[in-house]
Simulated scan of single mutants.
Amino acid sequence: MPAAALRPKPLPTQSTAKRPVPLDLPYAPVAKRPLPAGLPREWYVTHNRRLKAMRLAIALLDSGVYLPDQARNARIRSTAELIGVHPPSDATCRLVRALLHRHR
């Protein structure tokens, strides 16, 4: 009998579950580091928007939203409230959908 047949079958993960797994409470954030000084203000705005969009995209993926069509602005904003992030702007919502589309 091959060795692979003797290993126990792994538990289902979010990606293999039959229905979405409820979103856990957010985990402790990583330690923040200071941003580099001397860059234009627009760089900081864009950087923070991308970080927020990534956090929201990860939370949506964890809750079972895999397609950009499933991520309406209301859904993204309710997820932001759930994980403790300020409500995103329309531009941030578009970026979240772009991240979901790109990594699909």
Rank of each mutant, 00 (worst) to 15 (best):
M1G: 08
P2W: 05
P2E: 09
A5R: 09
A5Y: 09
R7C: 12
R7F: 10
R7A: 06
P8A: 00
P8N: 01
P10S: 00
P12Q: 06
P12C: 09
P12H: 06
T13H: 04
Q14K: 05
Q14H: 12
S15Q: 11
S15C: 02
T16K: 04
T16N: 02
T16M: 06
K18E: 12
K18H: 08
R19S: 07
R19F: 05
P20Q: 04
P22G: 05
P22S: 00
P22H: 03
L23D: 00
L25W: 00
L25F: 08
P26H: 00
Y27F: 06
Y27I: 04
Y27N: 00
A28P: 07
A28Q: 11
A28H: 08
P29L: 08
V30S: 04
A31I: 07
A31Y: 02
K32R: 04
L35N: 05
P36L: 02
P36M: 00
A37D: 13
A37S: 15
G38D: 11
L39C: 00
L39T: 01
L39W: 13
P40D: 06
P40K: 02
P40Q: 00
R41A: 12
R41F: 08
E42I: 13
E42P: 09
W43Y: 14
W43M: 08
W43Q: 02
Y44W: 11
Y44G: 08
V45H: 11
T46K: 13
H47N: 08
H47Y: 15
H47F: 11
R49I: 03
R49L: 09
R50I: 10
R50W: 09
R50G: 09
L51A: 14
L51F: 03
L51I: 12
A53M: 15
A53E: 15
A53H: 14
A53Y: 15
M54L: 15
R55Q: 02
R55D: 13
L56P: 05
I58C: 05
A59L: 09
A59Y: 11
A59E: 03
A59Q: 03
A59H: 09
L60K: 04
L60W: 00
L61I: 03
L61A: 12
L61V: 11
S63Q: 10
S63M: 08
S63F: 05
V65Y: 15
V65K: 05
V65T: 05
V65W: 09
Y66T: 03
L67P: 03
P68C: 13
P68R: 13
P68G: 13
P68W: 14
A71C: 10
A71Q: 04
A71R: 02
R72A: 14
R72M: 15
N73T: 15
R75S: 10
R77A: 15
R77G: 07
T79C: 15
A80E: 07
A80P: 07
L82E: 02
L82P: 03
I83R: 00
I83G: 05
I83A: 07
G84P: 08
H86F: 06
P88N: 01
S89M: 11
S89R: 04
D90S: 14
A91Y: 04
T92F: 02
C93E: 00
C93D: 03
V96H: 10
V96T: 11
R97N: 09
R97L: 02
R97V: 07
A98V: 07
L99K: 12
L99F: 14
L99E: 05
L100R: 01
H101W: 14
R102S: 14
R102D: 13
H103P: 05
H103I: 07
H103C: 13
H103A: 14
R104M: 12
R104K: 10
